[in-house]
Amino acid sequence: MRITEQQPGANKRFIDPASVSKRMDGRKITNTVFKTLFFMATLVALLVLGILFYRILSQGLGFLSLDFFQNFASRFPEKAGIKAALVGSLWLMAVVAPVSMFLGIGTAIYLEEYAKKNRVNDFIRMNISNLAGVPSVVFGLLGLTIFVRALALGNSILAAGFTMSLLILPVIIVAAQEAIRAVPQHVREASYGMGATKWQTIVRVVLPSAIPGILTGSILALSRAIGETAPLIVIGVPVIIQFLPSGVMDTFTALPMQIYDWAKRPQADFQQVASAGIIVLMAFLLLMNSIAVLIRNKFQKRY
């Protein structure tokens, strides 16, 4: 020990190889125990999902026919169809997608590229994330107060679309902010360094790199809007609709509303109709999520 201290540059030794190898067995056992524990947790989640899928498919597939897509709602389970709800959900998306993406991406660009880093803006940034955690019923009440009553839009596609847009806005903003932040600062500097304005830099450098991330986040947020029921109930979206909407001011119904209505009926057959509706809804969501994954994999930029 003394010699070590006298030699400059030679390090003192703190790790004793003998005691390390003595503790090795215990460390390996702990490792295995936790690995098994986490695997079991995954298994439970998968099992529940499997049962759910099995129940829904076995109940619903029988009702999934061409008629199911062509019929309106009905008192008789065998005549009940999903046409109005499916078309209604598509209409809803036609309002929600442009409104929420325009507002969400615009806000994210402002916050990331223009807003100065000060307390007020930090407070805003923080609270946008908090908004994403507000229950959807609350957004429904907000929509009821502002769009349905104050702006007198009634229970129209527009009112529901605006409400749903507000609901998913925080998620889109946060996703877009993250995508924009992931664009390295040095490519912005390259652009500014050549005399580009902020706007030119955003349009030509930042957005092209951030768009895949923004789209992925937006699509996932939109698929949440398709599945949401609570805000629609609060706004007073009807269920038994025997016509297709012809414009955004018309009333409508949507997939989750229709499924909810079928599921709460006493007749056993309607439970199966509800399952068929769920299959349609899930196929819809799966499709959107695959598009999101596709975009992410295909267009992601690497530096």
């Binding site: 390295p184 040095h186 490519v187 652009s191 360094g193 050549m194 005399g195 450098v205």
Partner: peptide, 21 residues
């Protein structure tokens, strides 16, 4: 105008920073 200044004065950075284009 900074934009005008920067069109007269080019800059090359420490780490090569081409655009992903």
């Amino acid at each position: 105008s900074v934009e005008e200044l920067r069109t007269r004065v080019g800059m090359v950075f420490q780490k090569p920073n081409p655009f992903p284009k």
